[in-house]
């Protein structure tokens, strides 16, 4: 465990990062992205539309005012819900701000002001308007969200009943993602377990069932392109699942502050074809058996797969 992060000498950093920044800048100029800084509330109606898949993480297909590209089978439901809710919200913002502007415009320095604090009717109207906005906007969010929770996020029956499901145990620590595959025998913590670092491989189109722990501090396991986020908390096993819609390479990011090098806790996720995945797992399992060391107890951090 390394806790010397805070005191590490940092003399080499500026030159290193500035070089990279220059590179980034070129990158950005080449891609020629729009740099809109539009006001909030109005610009969010862009739904994260599916981009053509690419085989390497690339910035070229990304748009500034859109969600990250959706590469999952089920994520489009969240995106659509967000899209709808943004339309409502834009409407609310337009209504509220428009009302305010019109009121100020029309009644600025008016000769007479009304002397009442509202009539019974006007107050009822306020309450009714608030209630109906609330019912429509919050209701849509609630219903849409509930559907997604029931069918996808909290429905572990899908990965549990699908025979093709790939199970992965992930152990987060400062500052990397260690993933464990059960190997041929389908049991964790045995000699043919495949263990990878910052390198997740999954077959496309198949449920991937992730169980997640942390050895040290709270981390956040996120797959921005798969609409997956889950805390990795020491002392407990959290689980979630997703399906990759197509082959390609995407990124794993940590979203909970986990120390000095939090920003470097980056992994890659490759979605492969069924055959490529099976071939890789076979080969990696074979190598794992050869390299297996019974006495290296620190390497045997896996656990019995937890039932949902």
């Amino acid at each position: 465990m390394s806790v010397e992060g805070k005191s590490q000498p940092s003399s080499d950093l500026p030159s290193d990062t500035s070089e990279r920044t220059l590179a980034l800048r070129e990158d950005a100029t080449i891609n020629g992205h729009r740099t809109d800084d539009a006001p909030p509330g109005v610009d969010k109606s862009v739904e994260g539309k599916s981009q053509p898949s690419s085989n390497a993480p690339s910035a070229t297909s990304a748009r500034t005012l859109a969600l990250p590209e959706d590469a999952s089978v089920d994520g489009h439901r969240i995106d659509a819900l967000l899209g709808w809710s943004h339309r409502f919200e834009a409407g609310m913002a337009a209504l509220a701000l428009g009302w305010m502007v019109v009121a100020v415009w029309r009644f600025r320095n008016a000769k007479r002001a009304a002397s009442d604090g509202g009539t019974k009717r006007s107050r009822a109207w306020v309450f009714g308007l608030a209630l109906s906005t609330f019912l429509v906007v919050d209701g849509a969010l609630l219903v849409g969200s509930e559907g997604y929770l029931r069918d996808v996020l909290w429905n572990l029956q899908v990965p549990a009943t699908d025979p093709r499901t790939v199970r992965i145990e992930i152990n987060a620590h400062q500052w990397s993602w260690e993933a464990r595959y059960a190997g041929e025998d389908n049991r964790f913590n045995t000699s043919d377990d495949v263990v990878t670092w910052n390198d997740l491989r999954v077959p496309a189109g198949v449920p991937v069932w992730v169980q997640l722990v942390s050895t040290d501090v709270v981390h956040g396991f996120s797959l921005p392109n798969f609409r997956v986020k889950l805390d990795a908390i020491p002392g407990r096993v959290n689980q979630t699942w997703f399906r990759a819609a197509r082959e390609g390479t995407w990124e794993v990011a940590c979203y909970q502050h986990c120390g000095t090098s939090h920003y470097r806790m980056r992994g890659e996720l490759r979605a492969l074809s069924d055959e490529a995945y099976a071939a890789w797992l076979r080969e990696a399992g074979r190598q794992a058996v050869q390299a297996y060391d019974v006495d290296d107890s620190a390497a045997h951090w896996g656990w019995e797969w937890k039932a949902p």
């Binding site: 969240i78 995106d79 967000l82 809710s85 969010l141 849409g144 969200s145 997604y148 929770l149 996020l153």
Partner: peptide, 9 residues
């Protein structure tokens, strides 16, 4: 951010 599904991304 108040609804679980849209909170995730």
């Amino acid at each position: 951010l108040g609804a679980v599904a849209t909170d995730v991304p």
